[in-house]
Amino acid sequence: MTPEWIFGLAGVLAAAAPLLIAVIGETFSERAGVVNLSVNGAMLLAAMAGFAVAVRTGSLELGFFAGVVIGALMALVVAFASLTLRQSQVAVGLVLALLGRDLAYFLGNPFMGMPGPRVGALPIPVLKDLPVLGPLLFQQSPVVYISLITVALAWVWIFRTRPGLVLRGVGERPPAAFVRGVPVTRVRYGYTVLGGALVGFAGAAYTLDLKGGWQGPISGIDGIGWIVLAITIFGGWHPVRGAFGALLFALLQWLSLVLQPRLPGIPSQVLNVAPFPLMIFALLLTNLGNTEWVQTALSRLPESSRRFALRVLHSLQVSPPAALGTVFEEE
């Protein structure tokens, strides 16, 4: 018999899958130097559009395709506004985050609560019968397989291939990349749009797979886009560490659900909002080592404990791509 907690963990993997894909998308975009703050709006609009298209056509593939197109288009607007028109990435991203949400609720109104197609589990022959690993990994929905493959591919691409080297160069030292003949702006356009496409896919995965359906403002998708941005930072713009962050996040959410009946004093709303203080706390941990007061405080500590504290802080610390959010003028 498979113990029950295995199914719980399998659920954690399923819940983390869209997060993983979206975090990888934002990681690509930010690695190239573009902060796409529109994620929350893009995911909501892609979730709604994906569901609406799937309902109208009866095709899940077309639904996901619609989500991908929406995400890519919104990212294209961010890229165009910042890279070509030199407008603030934060301003444009924020406006799109708000606009995407309102568009989703406005256009999605007639689709609220409608029944629609849903991705089912796709057990993998032979592997599904493995003890423990079978129910955990190989009886999942295709979205979960895609998410894990995306993380692996992203890692290989960024750290083990020539184009990945170019990508990192564009985000770290664009002038150096440019003199080596890299078309910096075009590369940034490409990765921003790719990142947006992944974010759009993740959005569609919520309505077509994980949640199954569009419920308007109570779909429980609003806010996830901001968590994605926070996990991207927490993951230090590294796909595997980002994936770890997303899994940890989903795990903690699951634990809070499991523990809820055992903590009668805490109302359910408090646990529902737990992700957000958690997000702040994670960012606090990654940034604390960079702040002035921590460094002065550490210098006062005795040698032995200071070294330990430094090691802990350094292991958590991340540093963004050096050219993140800046515009490079090709001359």
Binding site: L37, V90, W226, M279, L284
Partner: peptide
């Protein structure tokens, strides 16, 4: 200032907390 958390993320997180506080 003391935690190095960008105001966009700190603010957004606290927005969700505030809304939940009303529900509670």
């Amino acid at each position: 200032i003391y935690g190095g958390v960008h105001e966009i993320f700190g603010g957004l997180g606290l927005n969700f907390v505030a809304t939940t506080m009303i529900l509670w």
